[in-house]
């Protein structure tokens, strides 16, 4: 496969995102406010002595801040393009081009997240003025990046599946909103999953959402020990395999529907 078109798609998506300058600046602004708020909330909660086992306050604040920075990248839904193209019927013109359409969606989403990834840098600098973040050792950080990358891909495919439902229903907003709420809570983005008690805690860890935020974050703050890395990464890869396969099948079925029923 020639990669040039897909580099171009990513570059154009990057440029397109950059044209919405106001959005970029408000995003940095709101992130700083959220970092400050989270620090206040967790400090207050820890003062009430609700600290869970083995997660001291500075680790908790590190966790919350890194989670926010990750959300800058993960909350960009690069696949919403699918939904828009279906509603406007422009998917037909993409199918008339010599390209792989799912790969086009991926590179477009990648370009969009590229811009937001750049935003992380100024955000880290500002965040450091407000809070202190623990920095792990190099091997742990490398493991965090690997786990985050897998989480990123998994997140892409989960979004792809959500948006591909639009092939049958044309409207997926309600489903997405619900999934969003559930995943915000159950992915460990807001509250570390170690806070969930007993059986409930075990269920939450078994869900795919945990593989997106929780695993890289718990590696970062050292709750997941090096001897358990393999196990957690394996789970992440299993979910990735499952959702990428599901995406592939959904795309095949959807493309078939377009070519048989005319979209």
């Amino acid at each position: 496969m020639r990669l040039e078109p897909y580099f171009e798609f990513a570059k154009k998506a990057f440029a397109r995102e950059a044209t919405y300058r106001l959005e970029v600046f408000t995003e940095i602004g709101s992130l700083i406010v959220r970092v400050y708020l989270l620090r206040s909330v967790w400090t207050a909660l820890y003062a009430q002595n609700i600290a869970p086992m083995n997660l001291p306050l500075h680790s908790m604040i590190t966790y919350a801040t890194v989670a926010l920075l990750m959300s800058l990248i993960l909350e960009v839904d690069g696949t919403r393009l699918i939904r828009e193209k279906l509603r406007e019927g422009t998917i037909a013109t993409d199918l008339m081009k010599p390209i792989s359409v799912p790969f086009y969606f991926f590179s477009d989403g990648f370009g969009q997240t590229g811009l937001h990834a750049l935003l992380v840098i100024p955000c880290i600098l500002f965040a450091l003025l407000l809070v202190h973040i623990d920095v792990p050792s190099a091997p742990v950080f490398a493991m965090f990046l690997l786990s985050f990358a897998v989480g990123y891909l998994l997140n892409f495919f989960v979004n792809f599946v959500m948006n591909a439902i639009a092939f049958w229903t044309l409207e997926t907003f309600a489903i997405q909103l619900i999934v969003r709420w559930v995943s915000d809570l159950l992915s460990g983005q807001i509250i570390p999953l170690t806070f969930f008690p007993g059986v409930f805690g075990r269920i939450v860890f078994a869900l795919p959402f945990a593989a997106i935020y929780s695993t890289p974050l718990l590696i970062y703050v050292g709750v997941i020990h090096p001897q358990d890395y393999g196990r957690y990464l394996l789970v992440q890869f299993l979910w990735l395999g499952l959702f990428s396969t599901l995406s592939l099948f959904m795309w095949r079925a959807a493309a078939r529907r377009v070519v048989i029923q005319g979209g």
Partner: peptide
């Protein structure tokens, strides 16, 4: 319906097509 890229300057759509084909 247009095959041009809505948010981009016209010439950038052309460049994209150069890469595609």
């Amino acid at each position: 319906r247009s095959q041009l890229y809505w948010d981009l300057p016209l010439v950038e759509s052309f460049e994209l097509l150069r890469a595609i084909y």
